[in-house]
Design a protein around this nucleic acid. Structure first.
Length: 383
DNA sequence: CTTCGATAGGTATGTCCTAG
DNA sequence: CTAGGACATACCTATCGAAG
């Protein structure tokens, strides 16, 4: 058994003193030490360590600097509202500066991730550790076939890992049903599963398609996520245009999808795993019937954006944009033009634009010689 | 101490098909 | 013809260790 069981319960434990031994222990007993502060990054799974389309993690310093400087946040701003929060990285970077941070995203999986990382409710860490330990030491050869392995085995994951993932998810469901896990504990475990399978998925970062070449086996080992709990967090899973009619904020950050790529299609595996309703699946990529598609990925994007801005009750609006509007492929072309964004924001209030050279990543043949990440800051004219 | 090559990690688009 | 969905995938960069 692991020495951690006992030590973890001790409030006054000196982490630095026992630290090198603990790192070794971790690999042997499968118990994650990710909840311990001051450990090197390779032993933690952070909110940022996730593959996600349009991920703003690398821009968060630039973004928050501009945001905080240009909005006088320290004088009269208490509430930050991330309307399309995605990974939640930008929202997290605001915890130190605001009393209240509101996050919203339509995807179920992102919801679980916010609860796991941010929610400040009581949970039994030792229980979570022990369960992860159990999962990490399972004999994967003896696991039964299940929904996940039957559908995704040999495709998005190798068969062994798919069986393990399906087994763990089913086990979590049962423990939740029996009241053995509270919501926070369940979310931490499920988010941990999501973050770890992200690392071994047979894809190029999303689940719109899988790689057809033979799958290289990688061991699935669950390293615990490291929550950053925040008292002032408020979590929603609503249509952005509905939600803005209900909440108020000092600063609202708007980073919608800008091209026709639907996030619910990219991350259907996580949605499936989170909801665990075992839906019927279609097509080569085994996606369920579309749910929670975004109007921002369609030709109605401009109208939706206009409606959003008009109804948003915030002192400041910050809007992210990049100039990928001349892509060769129609699917990647921005649905809202730069001038349209400017126009809509200017009607709302005084608007400034900031730009940053963002080293673009591109698998295609379109050349973005001057790829820029833009940030609009609009000070709302309050009536 | 410097350079080079291997490897891991991260993120985006190209292209075809079909329904209306 | 158009829009959106389905299917498929590449390339750049940071890092680390070996070699010079």
């Amino acid at each position: 058994m692991c020495i951690f069981d006992k030590k973890f319960k001790s409030e006054s434990m000196d982490f630095t003193e026992v630290y090198p031994e603990q790192v070794k222990t971790e690999t042997q007993c499968g118990l994650s030490i990710a909840f311990f502060p001051d450990l090197p990054n390779e032993w933690q799974i952070n909110l940022e360590s996730r593959r996600y389309i349009g991920n703003k993690a690398k821009l968060s310093t630039w973004l928050s600097d501009i945001l905080l400087e240009s909005t006088n946040y320290y004088k009269d701003c208490d509430t930050f509202f991330d309307v399309f929060a995605g990974t939640g990285c930008i929202a997290k970077s605001m915890f130190a500066s605001f009393k209240k941070v509101i996050v919203n995203d339509i995807l179920h999986s992102n919801q679980v991730i916010y609860k796991a990382f941010f929610l400040k409710t009581a949970w039994d860490k030792a229980k979570v550790f022990n369960l992860l330990d159990t999962y990490n030491t399972l004999n994967t050869n003896k696991l039964p076939e299940n929904y996940f392995s039957e559908n995704f085995g040999g495709k998005f994951f190798d068969h062994k890992n798919a069986k393990l993932i399906g087994y763990i998810r089913e086990d979590l469901e049962q423990r939740k049903r029996e009241g053995e896990l509270n919501e926070k504990e369940f979310c931490v475990l499920l988010a941990t599963l999501i973050y770890n399978i992200d690392k071994i998925a047979n894809t190029l970062g999303h689940f719109d398609a899988y790689i057809k070449k033979p799958i290289r086996h990688q061991t699935l080992y669950l390293k615990s996520i490291q929550p950053i709990e925040f008292e002032g967090i408020e979590i929603y899973r609503e249509d952005a245009n509905d939600l803005v009619r209900k909440v108020k904020a000092d600063i609202a950050y708007i980073d919608p999808p800008y091209n026709s790529r639907q996030y619910n299609r990219f991350y259907h595996i996580y949605e499936n795993l989170t909801e665990w309703k075992k839906p019927e699946l279609f097509g080569v990529a085994l996606k369920p019937k579309p749910e929670n598609s975004s109007v921002y990925c369609t030709t109605k994007a401009k109208e939706a954006f206009q409606d959003l801005v008009e109804n948003l009750d915030a002192k400041y609006l910050a809007v992210s944009y990049n100039n990928t509007y001349n892509a060769k492929s129609q699917s990647s072309e921005n649905k809202i033009k730069l001038v349209e964004i400017e126009e809509i924001l200017k009607a709302k209030g005084e608007t400034k634009v900031f730009e940053c050279d963002h080293p673009y990543f591109n698998t295609g043949k379109t050349e973005f010689n001057e790829h820029k990440e833009l940030l609009f800051i609009c000070q709302s004219i309050r009536n």
